[in-house]
């Protein structure tokens, strides 16, 4: 839409509002990084200044080389990548079934998946703990992958379904006429076309798994297998005065999410809309 008559006061107001949103969104992250690069001796004198008089990378060095954070980072990476990969494969199958078939019980399955998105997942934290404990799987990263995969499948399925819906059915029908089985048609014709969708789903699930705290806190107590959120929280409650190091660790936790976010950013509107409309 082109607005023909532009009011200068309105235009100014618009740019002020844009700037306000930008500051509100970025200021907390700026502060996180700012404290992380402030030298320890200046924290109490210049902690609330907008920029410290000198900066240092010492906090990052300490966190990376002298604490367990790199191990936590590795654990989280393993869990998040594992969850993202398994979820995306299973959700692609389920989303394909929803997109291409009509079958008895479809409505019930969709309804059940929607309901799992609504009820408090914390409800099952006690039973999950007891089941995992009785299997001897406490402190195992695999158990986290299995649990996170189940939590993320419904949303990922609806997301994948919307990507499959956008691809004409004629394509695989033509391939099947040429003698492909349906699975071959899916693998050779349809999946290559849904690569962006697969990428977006991977990104969403990775971000969700990377952020998860409460179930990880319940199921993991061993220092060796802590994920990043659990490790950071334990660190904060133990060394609550070491501001610079905590924020350096926090800044590091931002990196993978931001990378994935840049990658999935252009699918956000599409992805969340399909999730929200159907969810």
């Amino acid at each position: 839409m082109s607005v023909t008559r532009t009011n200068p006061a309105l235009t100014l107001g618009k740019y002020v509002a844009l700037l306000a949103y930008l500051l509100f969104a970025l200021f907390p992250l700026y502060w996180l990084v700012k404290i992380a690069i402030t030298p320890d001796r200046l924290i109490f004198t210049e902690g609330t200044d907008l920029w410290p008089s000198t900066t240092t990378l010492d906090n990052f060095r300490t966190v990376i080389f002298q604490t367990d954070f790199m191990a936590f980072f590795g654990n989280s990476l393993y869990v998040s990548l594992g969850t993202a990969a398994v979820t995306t494969i299973l959700a692609a199958g389920a989303g394909y079934a929803f997109s291409r078939f009509d079958f008895g019980g479809k409505k019930i399955i969709v309804a059940v998946m929607l309901i799992t998105q609504m009820f408090p997942l914390l409800m099952i934290i006690a039973p999950i703990y007891k089941i995992v404990a009785s299997l001897g799987m406490l402190n195992s990263l695999t158990s986290l992958i299995v649990v996170y995969t189940a939590f993320n499948i419904p949303f990922a399925t609806f997301l994948m379904q919307s990507f499959f819906d956008a691809i004409p059915k004629d394509l695989e029908e033509a391939a099947m006429m040429d003698g492909c089985t349906r699975f071959q048609a899916l693998r050779k014709v349809i999946l290559p076309l849904t690569l962006p969708g697969l990428g977006a789903t991977l990104g969403f699930v990775f971000t969700a798994a990377w952020s998860e705290l409460l179930f990880a806190l319940m199921l993991i107590s061993d220092n060796e297998s802590m994920t990043f959120p659990v490790g950071l929280l334990t660190f904060v409650s133990r060394f609550s005065v070491d501001w610079g190091q905590m924020m350096a660790a926090g800044s590091l936790a931002l990196i993978p999410s931001c990378l994935f976010f840049i990658f999935i950013q252009r699918y956000l509107v599409q992805g969340l809309t399909s999730g929200a409309v159907k969810g």
Binding site: A25, L26, P28, L29, W31, L32, T207, W210, S211, L213, P229, L232, L233, V236, M246, G250, A253, L254, S257, C258, F260, F261, Q265, L268
Partner: peptide, 14 residues
Amino acid sequence: FLPWAVPTFLSALT
């Protein structure tokens, strides 16, 4: 849109 990608535990700490 970036805040949406920040892990919740980190938003909370920040």
